[in-house]
C-alpha cells in the first residue's frame, strides 16, 4: 500500500475501534477482575440489549432518520410481556407478542415519518412520551416481578457453553447482515437514505419501504425487551429509560453518517461494545452510575470531535 492509501484506510476506521482497544488495555490494568469469566459473562449480558438496539438504530440512521422512542418501546414491550406471562400465556406466544408489539410501535413511527412526513426527530420524540406513558398506565407505575423458569432461560440460560443472550445476539447480527446486504429490502434501505428520489423514480414503493424500516427496528426493540425483562426477572415501566441515548451514541461513535446512508452495522456494534466496556470499567473503579452517564456523553463528544478533525 502507498502511504496515501494507508492514510485513507486509516481514516475509515471509526473512533470506536481505537477506543475499544484502548479500553481493553486500560481495563486490564485497572482490575484483575476484568478478564474473569464472570465479568465477561456480565459484559455479554449487558451488551446484548444495547447491541440489538444499536443495530435497530443503525437501520433508522442509515435511512436518514433516527429513533428516539426505542428505549421507551423496550419498556412498553417489557411491561406487556410481564402482564402476558402473569396472565398464563405460553412462552412462544409471549415472544410473538413482544416482537409484534415492537413492530407495531415501529410501524407507527414509520407511518408518521414516511407517510405523514413528520421529521423523524419529532415523530419518534412524540412516541417516546406515548410509549413511556402506556407502560406506566399498564403497571400503574409499579413493576411486575418474578417469572417462570422457562422465561428466565432467555437471559440466564446457556447453550453450547455460551450465555444464551450472546447466542440471540449472534443470531440478530446474522439476520441483520442478511437483511441489509442480501435482500432487496436492504438495498432499498440504502437507497432511501442515499437518494430516495432515485428509488421512487425506479418504481419502488419508497413510502412503504421507509415505513417498514422503522417496523423492523421496532421488532428489534421487542427482542431487546425479552432479554431485558428476563434478565431482571421483572418488568419495569422505566427500564428502557436512556437506552435510546446509548444506542444512538453507539451508532455515532461507530462512524455512521447522518446523511446518504454512509455507514454499516459493524461500526455500531463496536460502538456498543465500547460503551458497555466503558461503563464496566467505571463500575470497577467505583464510579457511581449517574457519573457513568457523564462518562458516556463525554466519550460520544470526544469521538465525534476526533471524526471531525480527521475529516479535514
Amino acid at each position: 500500500m502507498e502511504r496515501g492509501e494507508i492514510k485513507v484506510a486509516f481514516k475509515k476506521i471509526p473512533a470506536a475501534a481505537f477506543a475499544l482497544v484502548f479500553l481493553f488495555i486500560a481495563c486490564s490494568f485497572i482490575s484483575e477482575y476484568f478478564w474473569t469469566g464472570e465479568n465477561l459473562f456480565n459484559l455479554g449480558l449487558q451488551g446484548t440489549v444495547l447491541a440489538i438496539l444499536a443495530l435497530a438504530q443503525t437501520l433508522c440512521i442509515l435511512a436518514e432518520g433516527i429513533d428516539l422512542s426505542s428505549g421507551p418501546l423496550v419498556s412498553f414491550c417489557g411491561v406487556v410481556v410481564g402482564v402476558s406471562l402473569h396472565g398464563g400465556l405460553s412462552l412462544p406466544v409471549v415472544i410473538l407478542i413482544s416482537l409484534a408489539l415492537g413492530a407495531a410501535g415501529g410501524f407507527l413511527n414509520g407511518f408518521l415519518i414516511a407517510k405523514v412526513k413528520l421529521p423523524p426527530f419529532v415523530a419518534t420524540f412524540g412516541n417516546m412520551g406515548v410509549f413511556t406513558g402506556l407502560a406506566l398506565v399498564i403497571t400503574k407505575g409499579g413493576s411486575i416481578p418474578s417469572f417462570p423458569e422457562s422465561f428466565r432461560f432467555i437471559a440466564g440460560g446457556s447453550l453450547w457453553g455460551l450465555p444464551f443472550p450472546v447466542i440471540i445476539l449472534a443470531f440478530m447480527i446474522l439476520f441483520n447482515y442478511v437483511l441489509l446486504y442480501h435482500t432487496r429490502w436492504g438495498t432499498y434501505l440504502f437507497g432511501i437514505g442515499g437518494n430516495q428520489e432515485a428509488v421512487h423514480l425506479i418504481g419502488v414503493n419508497d413510502i412503504f419501504f421507509k415505513t417498514s424500516i422503522y417496523g423492523v427496528a421496532g421488532a428489534y426493540a421487542g427482542v431487546a425487551a425479552l432479554v431485558m425483562t428476563s434478565r431482571l426477572n421483572a418488568a419495569h415501566p422505566l427500564v428502557g429509560f436512556g437506552m435510546e441515548f446509548e444506542a444512538i451514541a453507539s451508532v455515532i461513535v461507530g462512524g455512521c453518517s447522518w446523511t446518504l446512508a454512509n455507514g454499516n452495522p459493524w461500526g455500531s456494534l463496536i460502538g456498543a461494545a465500547t460503551i458497555v466496556v466503558l461503563k464496566n470499567g467505571l463500575n470497577v473503579l467505583g464510579v457511581p452510575p449517574a457519573v457513568q452517564v457523564v462518562g458516556v456523553g463525554a466519550y460520544l463528544i470526544l469521538a465525534v470531535v476526533y471524526d471531525t478533525l480527521k475529516g479535514d
Binding site: V178, H182, T183, R184, T187, F190, G191, G193, G194, N195, A198, V199, I202, G203, V204, L260, A261, N262, G263
Partner: peptide, 25 residues
C-alpha cells in the same frame, strides 16, 4: 444511490434473485 454498488444501482428495483431462496439477491 451513493453507498450501494454500481451493479445494484443499475438494477435498482429489478435485482435478480436466487432460485431456491428468492428473497436473497
Amino acid at each position: 444511490v451513493p453507498y450501494i454498488s454500481v451493479a445494484k444501482n443499475i438494477f435498482l428495483g429489478r435485482e435478480p434473485r436466487r432460485k431456491w431462496l428468492p428473497f436473497l439477491i
